[in-house]
Design a protein around this nucleic acid. Structure first.
Lengths: 345, 345
DNA sequence: CGGCGCGGTGAGAGCGCTCTCGCGTAGCGC
DNA sequence: GCGCTACGCGAGAGCGCTCTCACCGCGCCG
């Protein structure tokens, strides 16, 4: 733990290079409109002095921070500890880094924290926000809307509000679910069950809708509500076996629940995919490839979702001036999914 | 995506409250030495105007940022996608939030990125850094040392350098490993194998050392090197069965590998813990509780590690003035582990 | 040959805040 | 009742940067 040394200022560089502060500033910010000779001289002085611009001073006048907040509203531990979020974060990080932006992570714990986050965002510490708001009744989107800060949501926010200007990035949950169920039907299955995710999340609701799109008049007993956890998947599967012992296929709203379902099916003496075909969602490699049999699942490109969120946000902030006439605010994007066939269906 | 409105300044609040800027500043920063009447009046003005201090302006003069960088050096995707890191991050976040500090996340991808991180840290954007440097040959610690910024490491950095001033938080990997192996020995096992983690990480090396502490003259064939992944655990277990079919216990350096080992043992027709007892490390609940049988394992309190890292760092930055004579720089902390008995040993 | 335009540069005015000083007022002792 | 301390408050000077604007010298046109 060393203390930080006094850092050279613009002034110092200017003195050393024999030019004015303004010129050094110009060079540091790209060097347009400065003679090459001077540019070189200034660069040299910068190197020699090890000059690094003071971001605080810069922000003070530019009102930009080159920083973006990533807000993760996570009352339950669950989602945070799963690879999903990590991958998305990674995508975000890559994109932000590529555009010289910093990532400020805001994790919320409980309701009181919302206020803190709202204050922070409204406080003008960051240029924009990427928000993962998972639950339908989450007050966070409201708060953020009020903060008046450019925002892109991860996943369609379940929002009662009438705002149309919400920008989000999501997977085609409904379409992916349809593909999965159709695939099961294509295998000749007709007692196709669905294990839902937590239905207060739009992803779960959308996947359920996709299931219903195909199974228009499905036996309601074929639908078991769960919560995206392996344990929830097990519980739901037991319920299903109980209610409909003749079930011959299961579409689980994520891989974790599918893995739980597989376990229960095995316990019950059923063979997969022989007796019961199983499909998951997410294509979480570590899970999907390790199950027995390996899981057929609906892949979404999670890292790409993160990258896209960041890209949309940055575009919205339109750095680099409104040159290309891309003035239009970015609109939401729904990424396609693909069915990945492995052993379970 | 709304644009941010013009924000009220200290000046505005001062005018409204009928006091000077200085007084408002005092109130905003705690209100010491200001009459209660004025404090109240200023607070009211602040509320009415929705005043939020401009952090950039403040940092410019205080040279503090109330922000801490969390650096995750993660060449491989693996660790990032596992719950371990997420939990630690959560602990960090909680502690930082409690002290009104922001968390700036820096993920590195590949070697080139190290320079960027170094520049950022040296650039005085944050007050300190929490660094997860996992590999022995990682150049990051060096870089950071050079940046001259207060730093706490997550896990003992494997460092050839002769610096003694490195501060880190780690689990008692060696002690935990000893406990695990002793427990197995206590069950009467004497052909106790070890599946190591990636040995270029100190945690893996330390656990191996702990194993050796107990198994002083262990058959070298009882040690299989792996990489902390389930697949690696499977591979290692197969190797072990191949080399020593009479193995009667396995201590795996983490739960993920233990779960892989369990799978292989089951495949080979062995019963756990009857024929072979198995112990993992980490106590990653979702994994350890879901295996069949549930995994006996060495628990480390990961979230607490994160919290502690943040606490040490903040203490090192000694906000709140050096009042309590805690002037001494914080030193490293090694947290104890506990053996959690479940079904597998 | 005078004026005009233009690219290149520097001077200077802040951005919004903190913090040091110094002044005014109140409270204390003698 | 006077001086002294202590406390509360305001004035003002920056923190390090950006950005506007005016200036200067040059080449060019009329």
């Amino acid at each position: 733990m060393t203390d930080t040394a006094p850092r050279p200022t613009l002034e110092a560089v200017a003195a050393r290079a024999g030019v004015s502060r303004a010129t050094v500033s110009r060079v540091v910010n790209g060097g347009d409109g400065v003679r090459d000779i001077l540019v070189e001289r200034v660069r040299k002085a910068v190197d020699e002095l090890g000059y690094v611009p003071n971001q605080a001073a810069r922000s003070l006048v530019t009102r930009r921070h080159d920083a973006v907040a990533v807000v993760v509203a996570e009352p339950e531990t669950r989602v945070f500890a799963d690879p999903f979020f990590a991958l998305q974060l990674r995508g975000i990080s890559k994109e932000l880094t590529a555009h010289d932006n910093q990532l400020v992570l805001l994790l919320t714990e409980g309701r009181d924290d919302h206020a803190r986050v709202g204050r922070y965002l409204a406080g003008g510490h960051v240029d924009g926000a990427l928000v993962f708001s998972l639950h339908l009744d989450d007050p966070l989107p409201e708060l953020i809307q009020r903060a008046g800060i450019p925002t892109v949501f991860g996943g369609r926010p379940g929002w009662s509000g009438d705002r149309r200007e919400v920008v989000y990035v999501d997977s085609d949950n409904r379409g992916g679910a349809r593909d999965a169920v159709r695939h099961l039907a294509g295998l000749g299955r007709n007692r196709i069950a669905h294990i839902t995710g937590a239905l207060d999340q739009t992803s779960a609701a959308d996947r359920l809708d996709g299931y219903r799109d195909v199974m228009v008049d499905a036996d309601p007993r074929l639908i078991a509500e769960a919560d995206f956890t392996p344990a929830g998947g097990e519980r739901a599967m037991r319920e299903l076996l109980d209610r409909c012992p003749d079930v011959d296929a299961v579409f689980a709203a994520n891989d974790l629940m599918a893995s739980g379902a597989l376990r229960v099916l095995r316990e019950s003496g059923r063979r997969v995919p022989g007796d019961v075909a199983v499909i998951g969602f997410d294509d979480m490699r570590p899970v999907a490839e390790q199950t027995d049999p390996p899981l057929t699942t609906v892949r979404q490109d999670i890292e790409e979702m993160g990258r896209l969120m960041a890209r949309l946000l940055l575009r919205g902030l339109d750095r680099t001036a409104p040159q290309e006439g891309v003035g239009a605010p970015p609109s939401s994007v729904v990424l396609p999914t693909t069915l990945v066939r492995r052993g379970s269906a």
